[in-house]
Design a protein around this nucleic acid. Sequence first.
RNA 1: GGAGGGAUGGCCGAGCGGUUUAAGGCGGCAGUCUUGAAAACUGUUGUGGGUUUCGUACUCACCGGGGGUUCGAAUCCCUCUCCCUCCGCCA
Length: 440
Amino acid sequence: MIDINIIRKKPDWVKAQIAKRNDSAPIDAILELDGRRREILKEVEELRRQRNASSKQIGRLMGQLKKAQRAGEDVTKLETAVSQAKAAPRQIGDKISTLDDERRQVEADLQEKMLWVPNLPHPDTPIGPDESYNVIHEPQGAAESVFDFTPKAHWDLGTALDIIDFERGVKMSGSRFYVLKGKGARLQRAIIQFMLDMHVDKHGYTEAYPPFMVRSQCFENAGQLPKFYDNVYRDAEEDFMWLATAEVALTNMHADEILDEAALPASYVAYTPCFRREKMSAGKDVRGIKRGHQFDKVEMYQFVHPDESEAELERMKQHAIDICDALGLRYRVLELATGDIGYASERTYDIEIWAAGCEEWLEVSSTSNCTDFQARRANAKFRPADGGKTRYLHTLNASGLALPRVMIAILENNQQADGSIIVPEVLRPYMGGIEEIVNC
RNA sequence: GGAGGGAUGGCCGAGCGGUUUAAGGCGGCAGUCUUGAAAACUGUUGUGGGUUUCGUACUCACCGGGGGUUCGAAUCCCUCUCCCUCCGCCA
């Protein structure tokens, strides 16, 4: 949610910002509803003020009446006065409830429309309607092949080593599902543990293990609803949705809270599975483990002071890069164009790693500054140390990293001519000390 | 799944449908006293919205959320959420 004051002051500018995203939002309708809301509010509050005064008057009369009754005096005059005094506020009350009904309707409409306004892009975000305008940072280009044989794709390697079982995954759950077996499952677990340890021990995040199913309100707060409703798995009977990313859960860690400035930044890292219908990507990347309905991810998330969010974005990007470096993965950084950044984001970096077998750059991390967009929806604030008014926090998220694609890169880049895989050194302590995955 | 009890300010905890303010305590902040501190005493204390002479006052709402009854609701009714106790089931 963006600040409605910006829309009030510069509606045309806001429209232009949203147009840069190749998106649109009902700004004119919002202005109209907002104006009507304030009209009603002015009127209904004045009426309420009048009614409050009248009711207080009746209260005083009732006090006198009771006193008189106790004293055994004649109370008919007072009783008449009370019933006469009721007439005016009763009429006011009728007007109030009519206006209140309209107010409720207007506010519901306004809220619904505001939910369809995306975050506004940062002035430095490259402008362009789609991903072809993304700016690729160093290092660029594909790695020259270091192989003296033709490297295989992970689906062939995994099947041959019997560490990825596509057939049985499909048997259980259909396409886009697979079973990791033996050293494959162990490798994934090792990567998860390595990443969590690095973010906790070296980068200072607090490890969190959130629920994997959360209320739909959590998705709305994170900016995933209403727009991405079709891409989320949900419970048929209860108001539960399965995480599409841990970001959804972590956004809500401090929902409806006011943090002390001294508690900032509040930094979390969580391992969770992620569930996505992939409706928008139907038919895309169906081979291998690149894009499944279920995948694992380690996610970083921070609540920071608004003045810190821009610098923090750079640091979080580096935290993701640190993982790539430690695992020996060749990566490149993309700065996403206005047409490609996420709905809640003002500025996003993607990190892609090179996979030598399928010969593509794979997105393993997306690092975004969501400014106060999610914080407004989630009502997450902080109290400035100088005692000023409470302000909305800024939130940032960064994958650190997405597991299947890291697996792909390790399998494909570390393969040897005989199809065995060299285990990256940093993972060996988590793999019982083994140095390679071999066919047995 | 069944039966019952709860939710009040940062925290604890009162609150017969009304008579100017949600009592009281704790904590926090400021001040007095003191060389300093403690104690004591005094004052102060939340969130959001609207109007505005825009920095000043006025005003409205908020006692778990949402409706309702009433001239008037923390208080009565309905509903949802969460917590607690007991029974049953269970990794």
